[in-house]
Nucleic acid binder design. Structure first.
Length: 765
DNA sequence: CTAGGGTTAG
């Protein structure tokens, strides 16, 4: 007979020291004599059997027995010399495992003189449950060497270990062993075998086992149903679902979740309604997945209804459900509610004993990041570290995105290094987020290094590096990378094209942009969405082809999208075309009467033409409608500290120095030939005031502060929440020349790298 | 057998 190739049989420790059970020496025997009726049992005809019955009932008792009670029982069995009985030993062993004390369980296991299949199975399944699958398999191997014949539970557990260890070969060996040893195949074992093959995508094997089954149950059918969902064959899975004689809650959960996984959210919603209408009871799984569904569809009311159902059914303390609730409210933009739920978590039942609070942390942090509240997310992350929660790749991915938004290069770098030190494995999500983070923080070297170190690249990895170069306006590199991606047989998605098209637009590659727009539809069958239309309007508009852009909007019948008008309006402003600006802003304000951008852009366009009447009329209208402009702010990070500036503000402790330096510098720049672009000032002011308003724009303050606080030659990295002003753009070119400093500025759309009197954007933006 | 958190653009 061939033996199983199971690694590392476990060396059992045969120790006899009871000192492994520290409470033994001073055991409070008296305190349990009333609660646990041991002594009367001992006078029964068959005290051992009675004792075994007691152990069984205690293991099912709620609340579960305390460690002291278990040790008390253990003590009693020794005193009554029952411990040599395998069934008694198994009973106590089971209690230790249920209590979660594997160390004590293993110590008892070592002391047992006779171990049967149950003894081994209790211990090895305990190890598997805490995630130590190797040890579990090692015990299995020792068990076989000890000539103890495994039962169905042992084998099912071993197959689970093979799934968790991703060890297909081992699982096949186990299956072979089962067949060779003529183990009778019952439903449970056959289901385990099916599940094993299903997890490894060995569809034919699953079907063969299912086909041969004489008796099938819900689980067998469910595995078949999920098998088809796994490969995206929703039709076939629904056929089986309708055919199944055992359709119950779990089957419904599987089809609903399966459709969600295949991105068929509205179909999933239909199924949920059908399930409810049939009067099917919703269990905790249903509630959890339907909350996720409500979040993805941004259906707040549905989410609230399910929340009500959660409270009614008493699942409010389930940790899984709490995470789903946090996720749902975050996705619906209700961060206050998410936060309240998160803060109310003290006593949630950790379902299955495997749920940890780390996931709750990561889900609330993700919520803040998704709602654009990076500072709050980072603050929460610090609290999480203080409270000793474990940082995993999920949290770190969100934090990387938060650092991208806030432009915090140093924090991002620290977290990256910290994570690498922990020795976590490679992850596509994380490396994509890090690539993006480094790029958005201005370090293309780090972004490229991260991308190069990405061993398994998918569309997202490629799209993030492509988007990074697009951010720096390096259209040629973007096109090169895009072609490289195609060479590696990675199919571009909608987002890849947004990056490519916006890069073309930012680099003035008009023909290329139009070619890729065509290729997207013809070669990849991607139907252009608002984002692509907007890129095209932007592409034409930036190039000054305003009429063509307008025609593009009409031809594609997209005049109901505000974004395309916003792009045209922005282009009209850059090219000072007041008629087109008015035309597009009329459309824009009809579509979005409360949109800040439309007012600001139009009012600015009027202002540029020095039409103060119209400009101020626009601003008054904004005030009437209660719209306020997002204040422009710029920030710079020095020695780990963030310095934020708004136009003309003197709040900074070194404000006097900053202003003094800036004023002198501007005099010098004028000698070099600079003159103020006063046409960029947005209010009707006297000439002198105009100039001073311009001179102290937030980005100028931040750059000046950077120069006076760092040694000569250090590059200056500044972030701005809005687009850079035209005058500042001119000034920074002069400054880079006059001071020999490199100025790297990230605005709302892209990077501008000023060096030796020139900007990387080539003034095309 | 079935459940929760993450990436890319605008």
């Amino acid at each position: 007979m061939r033996t199983l190739k199971i690694p590392n049989p476990v060396q059992l420790k045969n120790s006899t020291a009871l000192s492994k059970f520290p409470c033994f020496s001073h055991h409070p025997t008296r305190s349990f004599n009333n609660v646990l009726p041991i002594d009367p049992l001992l006078s029964e005809k068959n005290p051992q059997r009675a004792f075994i019955g007691l152990l069984k009932s205690i293991s099912r008792r709620s609340p579960a027995p305390s460690l002291l009670e278990i040790e008390f029982l253990h003590c009693k069995t020794i005193k009554a010399s029952f411990i040599g009985n395998t069934n008694v030993g198994n009973g106590i062993l089971n209690l230790y495992v249920k209590y979660g004390s594997i160390g004590f369980a293993h110590a008892l296991f070592d002391e047992m003189l006779q171990r049967d299949a149950l003894t081994w199975t209790i211990l090895l399944s305990a190890y598997s449950r805490i995630g130590n699958h190797e040890l579990s398999l090692g015990l299995f191997s020792t068990m076989l060497a000890d000539k103890v014949f495994p039962n169905h539970f042992t084998l099912a557990c071993v197959l689970k270990c093979c799934i968790n260890l991703n060890d297909f070969e081992m699982g096949r060996e186990v299956h072979g062993w089962i067949l060779r040893n003529g183990i009778e195949l019952d439903v449970v074992l056959q289901n385990s075998i099916m599940e094993f093959y299903a997890k490894f995508g060995a569809f034919e094997c699953v079907k063969r086992v299912f086909g041969k089954m004489i008796e099938r149950d819900v689980v067998s059918w469910n595995i078949m149903i999920s098998l088809y969902l796994q490969i995206g064959d929703t039709n076939r899975s629904m056929e089986l679902f309708r055919l199944s004689p055992f359709r119950d809650v779990s089957s419904w959960n599987i089809v609903i979740n399966g459709h969600m996984q295949n991105e068929l959210h509205s179909r999933a919603l239909q199924l949920l309604y059908e399930m409810v209408n049939l009067g099917c009871r919703l269990n905790q799984f249903t509630l959890s997945i339907s909350l996720v569904l409500a979040g993805r569809l941004v259906m707040l009311e549905l989410g609230q209804q399910i929340h009500g159902q959660v409270l009614r059914t008493g699942f409010g303390h389930d940790a899984f459900i709490k995470t789903s609730l946090i996720d749902m409210y975050s996705k619906c933009g209700k961060m206050e509610v998410s936060k309240a739920i998160f803060n109310g978590i003290h006593q949630c039942t950790y379902y299955d004993g495997l749920v940890s609070k780390d996931i709750l942390w990561s889900s609330i942090i993700a919520g803040y990041v998704q709602n654009g509240r990076s500072e709050d997310a980072i603050e929460l992350f610090r609290r999480m570290l203080r409270e000793g929660a474990k940082v995993d790749k999920f949290t770190l991915t969100s934090i990387a995105a938060a650092c991208s938004d806030a432009g915090l290069l140093e924090q991002g770098r620290q977290m990256h290094a910290c994570f690498e030190k922990l020795g976590h494995g490679f992850d596509v999500f994380l490396t994509s987020a890090l690539t993006d983070m480094y790029a958005k923080c201005g370090s293309m070297q780090d972004a490229h290094k991260t991308f190069d170190s990405t061993s398994v690249r998918n569309v997202v990895s490629w799209t993030s590096i492509i988007g990074s170069y697009a951010l720096f306006g390096q259209g040629r590199e973007v096109i090169e990378l895009y072609e490289k991606m195609l060479e590696e047989n990675i199919l571009p998605n909608e987002i890849s094209f947004v990056s490519v098209l916006s890069a073309c637009s930012h680099s003035g590659l008009i023909e290329e942009g139009q070619r890729y727009y065509k290729s997207m539809q013809e070669d990849y069958g991607i139907v252009p969405g608002v984002e692509h239309f907007t890129c095209m309007v932007d592409l034409l508009g930036r190039a000054g082809l305003l009429d063509q852009a307008k025609e593009f909007i009409q031809e594609n019948k997209i005049s109901h999208h505000s974004a395309v008008w916003r792009a045209l309006l922005a282009a009209s402003r850059v090219h000072n075309n007041i008629e087109m600006a008015i035309y597009s802003s009329e459309h824009l304000s009809r579509l979005e009467p409360y949109d800040v951008g439309s007012f600001v852009l139009l009012s600015n366009t009027y202002a540029t033409q020095r039409n103060w009447m119209e400009s101020s009329r626009m601003r008054n209208l904004m005030a009437c409608r209660g719209i306020s402009k997002q204040p422009g702010k710029s920030w710079i990070q020095l020695k780990g500290e963030l310095h934020t500036f708004i136009v003309g503000d003197r709040l900074h402790p070194r404000a006097d120095e900053i202003y003094f330096y800036l004023e002198n510098l501007l005099v010098k720049l004028k000698e070099m030939g600079y003159s103020s672009r006063i046409d960029m000032v947005l209010h009707d002011l006297e000439e002198e005031q105009v100039e001073s308003a311009l001179n102290f724009h937030s980005e100028k303050l931040a750059v000046a502060y950077g120069i006076i606080s760092t040694p000569c030659g250090t590059p200056i990295r500044v972030m701005k929440n809005l687009r850079i002003c035209v005058d500042c753009h001119v000034v920074f070119k002069y400054i880079s020349q006059a001071t020999g400093r490199e100025i790297i500025l990230r605005d709302a759309h892209r990077f501008h790298c000023f060096k030796d009197g020139r900007c990387s954007c080539g003034d095309y933006w």
